[in-house]
Simulated scan of single mutants.
Amino acid sequence: MSTLRPDYRALLVAASGITAGESDAASEEALARAEAAAASALAGGAVEDVPHVRAWREAYRAFGAKPQRTRNSLEALMRRAASAGLPRVNRLTDLYNALSVLHQVPLGGEDLDAYAGPPRLLRATGEEPFDTVAEGRPVVEHPEPGEVVWCDDEGVTCRRWNWRQGRRTQLTADTTSALFILDALEPLTDQALLAAGEDLLDHLRRLGPDVRTATRLLGPTTSHRG
């Protein structure tokens, strides 16, 4: 996405050997900290004034999305955390939602075993299938032409960069291998992005004695490590 946002970076974190499970005391504690952090961050101003939220609103406008109608995942979570509270879903989903708010970075998680081929970020043609839920029922939708989407060989896994994740690759209590994507724009620094990744890795390594992880930073300088 260098032509659309030259400052865009993505940190990919993969983990295998996970013992996932349902929401527990550890995930509850992380969610409670995130809710308190969101309330504190928004006590003196509006969520759209948070620097990284504002940057993502500008990115959405650049490919034709209306940020008031389809909010980036960071904005949506911060709004919910500061008002009604974050959802309690399962251990892995609770973890990435909490860390997204705590580090003020869009962060999504996918079940790697449900992937068909490697993940890739692209501008949609509008033909790609997106497996989701509408009005409580499973449906297949399609992105708008030119929309920024994450895809694998079977279709869209996340629409509008980090707006809505698909049903096919969603994390569950039975997930054992997962991919997490942390999205960054200026003014978020590489240092802050990597710190969020290290916090995620620290939590993931607690989810079983055989957890293995690898990371890759995509951007102007690409690096990876196991």
Rank of each mutant, 00 (worst) to 15 (best):
G64H: 01
L31Y: 03
R206N: 12
G136P: 04
A192Q: 11
E22M: 15
A173F: 07
L185T: 04
W150K: 00
R225C: 14
T172W: 07
A26H: 06
A59W: 04
L92A: 11
P87A: 01
N90M: 08
R167N: 09
A184G: 07
W150N: 02
E128Y: 01
A214K: 13
P209C: 04
G109M: 01
R167E: 13
Q68D: 15
F180W: 11
L218G: 10
G109L: 01
R61P: 05
S27I: 01
A30T: 07
Q170F: 15
A124V: 00
G117Q: 09
P138F: 05
G21P: 00
G64W: 01
P119T: 13
L217C: 09
W161S: 14
L107A: 11
D190T: 13
G197T: 07
R212V: 14
T222E: 12
T172L: 12
T70E: 13
S73V: 08
D7P: 07
A15E: 01
D24F: 04
G155Y: 02
P145H: 12
A195G: 08
E144H: 11
L11E: 05
P187Y: 04
G17A: 06
A43S: 03
P145C: 00
Q68T: 12
A10G: 12
L188E: 04
D113W: 10
V148M: 03
E135K: 14
A173Y: 09
R5W: 15
N72P: 04
T70I: 12
P51N: 01
G219F: 04
W163G: 09
P187Q: 02
P220I: 13
N162D: 08
G136S: 02
H224M: 14
L95W: 10
R160M: 15
A30S: 08
L193A: 08
L102W: 03
R164I: 09
V47N: 00
A76H: 02
Q104T: 14
D210Q: 11
Q165E: 14
D24H: 00
R137I: 02
D202S: 15
Y115C: 10
T172N: 08
E144V: 15
L207N: 02
E35D: 03
L185S: 08
Y8D: 10
L188T: 13
V89L: 13
G108T: 15
H224Q: 15
S100H: 11
T93N: 12
A30W: 05
H224V: 12
A34D: 00
C158K: 09
T19H: 07
G219T: 07
A34E: 00
S40H: 10
T19N: 08
A32F: 06
L77N: 09
R160E: 14
A38G: 03
D24Y: 02
A196M: 06
S83F: 10
A37G: 05
Y115M: 14
E141H: 05
Q68E: 14
L179E: 06
F63G: 02
D131A: 13
N72H: 11
C158I: 13
T221H: 12
S23Y: 06
T3M: 10
R91L: 10
V156D: 00
G226T: 15
